[in-house]
Amino acid sequence: MKAFSNKKNKRRYSPRRKFLKSGLVLSAAFISGSTSISSCSGDNSTKSGKKTRLLTQDGNLVEVDESNIHESHKHCIKASLKEERKGIPGRKFVMVIDLAKCRNARKCIEKCQEAHNLPPDQEWMKVYLIKDSQHTEPYWFPKPCFHCDNPPCVKVCPVDATFKRKDGIVLIDNHRCIGCKFCLTGCPYSARIYNWKEPEIPEDIKNQQYSAETSVPAMIGTVSKCDFCPDMCRIGKVPHCVSACPNGAIYYGDLNEDAVSNGNEVVRFSELMSDKGGYRYAEELGTEPCVYYLPPKERIFPVKSGFKNLSEEEKARYKNIIK
């Protein structure tokens, strides 16, 4: 029974079954067989029992019953809480950030804030300017949640509100969190954010059912953080920060497939690691992060270019590094 339901879910959430494009199919006798379908906009009500062919997202043609179209789309957006705690089967998500390509454009932060209804002062992705030692060159250091495989934040949670999924993602159940803030002190990377006041989000979003995968809506007195956007994966898209980066500095993908994508190109994770000297931040802490970094070698942008679009206030953040 369990295996069966897993299989069912796997199929349901597989990107292959997402019908995102609409069109018109011409059969051999193309005039009589033409059918118009709009699967996503949902403005046309289609009759059941009629077979129709659709172009799937990855370019395959599939034949489905029309009555399934709306149904399957509806379900692909939100998984149940139980599913959310389990994770997407067979996946192991990783992120690779190429420090050579980051110039603090802050597009990842902006897009992330927009997608998760965050106020401007809450940054799930933070960009630090790091100068490791006196004679080394500073570099921009984008830092999401590391989704550690040995997560110190999950260890200390007294109520299982934050949890580690099978696919490697660490999420938060906002309805269970008691706001003890222990996970904030537990995280050595300061990745977590506390909702100190009533979040200012539109009423209709506030009334939404909370989903751990989207981390929306935020709730006062609870914790939130970067969620690696598994909801985007369920519709076959890369996380918001990845697609927003103008320089393609952030790669995201499945370690089991040995492939990561920055939205434009797909590269083999193992090649990236071996060719560019990938590493993890603060390996000695033993937290086993799922975020890898490529050293800032052969940089595309000088460090200073990162100050270009910053307000004076934002520049003040880095005053200790560059004097």
């Binding site: 996946r91 497939e257 797909v266």
Partner: peptide, 8 residues
């Protein structure tokens, strides 16, 4: 074919 796109 990979999760998000095609690997050359």
């Amino acid at each position: 074919k990979r999760l998000y796109s095609l690997l050359e």
